[in-house]
Simulated assay, not measured.
Amino acid sequence: MKAEELRKLTDDELKEKVVELKKKLMNLRFQNAVGGLEKPSEIRQTKRDIARILTILRERELQAQSGGK
């Protein structure tokens, strides 16, 4: 998921996406513990996607506080 695509979404959509990705991450970790995970790199990518979304939300929050400069 690219930041450019994420920036087009609203705050509410981004928050829903974070919840969805956190559930996915939990399932991936469970599969990894059981030993049935085919692509371990998917865990890293999911964590990065979550961080990317949270960064965009924080940027928007700071921009709103500074008056939208």
Rank of each mutant, 00 (worst) to 15 (best):
E42P: 01
I56L: 03
E20R: 14
A3L: 06
A51C: 05
A51I: 00
V19I: 15
R60L: 00
A33N: 12
T46D: 06
I43Q: 00
L62F: 13
K22F: 02
E16I: 08
Q65S: 10
D49Q: 13
E4M: 03
R44C: 08
E38S: 06
D11A: 06
A51Q: 11
I53V: 05
I53E: 02
G68E: 14
R52A: 11
G36Y: 13
K39Q: 15
V18K: 05
I53F: 02
V34H: 03
L14E: 01
E4P: 04
R7T: 07
K24M: 05
E20Q: 11
N32S: 13
K47A: 07
E59K: 01
S41A: 06
V34W: 11
M26K: 12
R29C: 07
E16A: 11
G68V: 15
E4K: 10
K24H: 12
K69Y: 14
E20I: 02
S41M: 07
T10I: 00
G68S: 13
L37N: 04
R48D: 14
L37P: 08
L6C: 08
M26D: 11
G35S: 01
N27G: 04
R7W: 01
K22W: 04
Q45V: 13
K17T: 06
L37S: 01
K39W: 09
E38F: 09
R7D: 03
K15L: 10
L57P: 03
M1L: 05
Q31S: 15
K23S: 06
R58V: 09
D49N: 05
S41F: 11
K2Q: 15
M26R: 14
I56S: 08
L14W: 04
K2Y: 09
E4L: 10
K8M: 04
E61F: 14
R52P: 06
R44A: 14
L54K: 12
T46A: 09
K17Q: 09
A3K: 10
K47Y: 10
D49F: 02
E16L: 15
T55D: 15
K15Q: 10
K15F: 06
E13H: 01
R7V: 09
V34C: 02
A3P: 13
P40G: 07
E59S: 10
R44Q: 15
E59M: 05
S66W: 13
R60F: 09
K17I: 11
F30G: 05
E16N: 11
L9H: 07
G67M: 00
K24L: 12
M26E: 12
G36S: 14
K22I: 00
K8V: 13
L14G: 01
N32L: 14
P40I: 11
R29L: 14
K47M: 11
L62P: 06
P40V: 07
